[in-house]
Design a protein around this nucleic acid. Structure first.
Length: 195
DNA sequence: GGTAGGATGGGCT
DNA sequence: GCCCATCCTACCC
């Protein structure tokens, strides 16, 4: 699989968070020689969403979410794993998309060395913590501009594929569970399994 | 096949 | 001091 040389532009991200979450499915995350096709996302909204980190308001940690769209929000989950989000909405309005799972498409050997415990290709990036580890992302990457950073960009796939989108409740949260904000490529094998 | 529980640290009340 | 946007292992069908 290949992808366009030019990354997705700012206006792709400067839209309602749900549109960005759906739009990111099938796109290619590129980090150095490693690349992966996004197959599962979750939207975290700026209003009426108690599960979103930004629900607590603007703090040092959530500053990036309130900033301009098209930037990476990376945080430490459960003190152990890193997770990658991409900021949506216009500057000043919170909203971000958690990238939950991806299908490795390049640099698979490198990803395997970063995730020595993964036994199968299907285990490499089929969860937010696994994905961040496979791509080698840490807190140092928080705030990166994914429309132009040499470290991390997101691209249109070539050829662009057709697929149905499955919608359901988000994973691993206790608040605002009723909101249908999890999106995935229907029947894709690389989606996360956890509930 | 399935799941319960531990690891582990930063953010927020 | 409590709460997590998780992953992995051990152990049990």
């Amino acid at each position: 699989m290949r992808w366009l040389k030019t990354p997705l532009k700012r206006d792709f991200y400067a839209r309602p968070t749900v549109d960005v979450a759906r739009g990111l499915l099938g796109k290619i995350l590129v980090r150095g020689e490693t690349a992966a096709r996004i197959v599962e996302t979750e939207a975290y909204l700026g209003e009426g969403d108690l599960a979103a980190h930004s629900a607590a308001g603007l703090t040092d940690r959530t500053r990036v979410i309130f900033g301009p769209p098209g930037h990476a929000y990376v945080y430490l989950s459960y003190g152990v794993h890193h997770c990658l989000d991409v900021v949506a909405e216009t500057d000043g309005r919170p909203g971000c998309v958690l990238i939950r799972a991806a299908e490795p498409v390049a640099g698979i050997g490198v990803m395997q060395t970063r995730r020595p415990k993964a036994r199968r290709l299907l285990d490499l990036a089929s969860g937010p913590g696994k994905l961040a580890a496979a791509l080698g992302l840490t807190l140092a990457h928080n705030g990166l501009d994914v429309t132009r950073s040499p470290e991390l960009t997101i691209h249109e796939a070539r050829p662009r594929s057709e697929f149905a989108i499955a919608v359901g409740p988000r994973v691993g949260i206790s608040k605002s569970v009723e909101l249908p904000l999890r999106f995935s490529i229907a029947d894709n094998e690389h989606v996360s399994r956890s509930r």
